[in-house]
Amino acid sequence: MKILKVLIAAALMALQGQVAMAGEVNAAVAANFTEPMQMIVAEFQKETGHTVKLSFGSSGKFYSQIKEGAPFDIFLAADVKNPKLLQKEGLAVEGSDFIYALGKLVLWSAQPGLVDDQGHVLRKGKYNKIAYADPKLAPYGLAARETLEDMNLWNVLQNKLVTGESIAQTYQFIASGNAEIGFIALSQVTKDGKVSEGSYWLVPAQLYNPIRQGAVLLSNAKDNAAAKALLAYLKSDKAKAVIRSFGYGLP
C-alpha cells in the first residue's frame, strides 16, 4: 500500500512538474504577422520548452470566434480596437494589451515594374483587378479603403475591386496574378528588411490611420504562465529585431 501511495504521489508530482515546466499556448494571430510570428515562436519554444499552437486569420474573424468561446490564450490582432473590445466584454485580461508592431500598407504587384514608387499606377496603370482585404474584417483592408478615399479613387475603382476575406487571401489573389495589383501588409512581401519580389509602393503613412497592432492576454489564460511568457517575449529585443526585419515599425 505504501508503495502505491508513493508511486501515485510521484506520478502526480511528475505531472504537475510537467505542467509548470512545459506549458501550452494557443495563439490567434493576425494573418499579416504570420511569418514573423513563426520565427519568433520557433525561438521562444527552443528557449523555454513551451509549446505554441498558432492560428492565422483576420482580426475580425478571431474576435467573433473568441466571443463564441474559441479556446485561444493570446490574441495578436492587426488593430487595437478588437483587443480593447474583448477587454470591455470581459474576455481579455484588463490592462494586458500592448502594441507589438506598427503595420505598413503597400500596394504590391507580382509583376516587376508594374507598380511605381509613387503609386501613379493606381490612376494611370493598366490593370483589370485590384485586390484588398474586407475592410469590415481586416484593418489593412480598412487602411486600403482610407488610402483610396484619400486619393479620390474609391468610387472610380469600384468595378475593379476584389475582396479577400483576410490579407492572406488578398496576397494569394495578387501572387497568382489574378489581380494585377493590390493592397497588403509590407510584412507579407518583406524578407530580411527588403521586398524580395514584384514591384511595390509603400503607401505614405498620412494616407491612412495608423495600423497599431495590439496583443492581449485572453481571460482563458489568466493563469497560463506560458502565455504570459510569450507576451513578454514579444517585447524582448530578440523579438523586436525579427519584427523590424519584416518591415514593421515599433511603438
Binding site: S58, G60, K61, Y63, S64, K67, K129, A131, D134, K136, L137, L161, V162, T163, G164, E165, Q169, F173, N178, A179
Partner: peptide, 26 residues
C-alpha cells in the same frame, strides 16, 4: 466560390458568402 469569387457584390457574392461575411462581422 470563396477562393475564386473575390466577393464582388452582384457578380460573385452569392448567398453562402454573404452568410459567411455576416457571421464574421458579427
Amino acid at each position: 466560390v470563396l477562393m475564386l469569387g473575390g466577393n464582388i457584390q452582384g457578380e460573385t457574392r452569392v448567398l453562402s458568402i454573404a452568410i459567411y461575411n455576416h457571421v464574421e462581422a458579427v
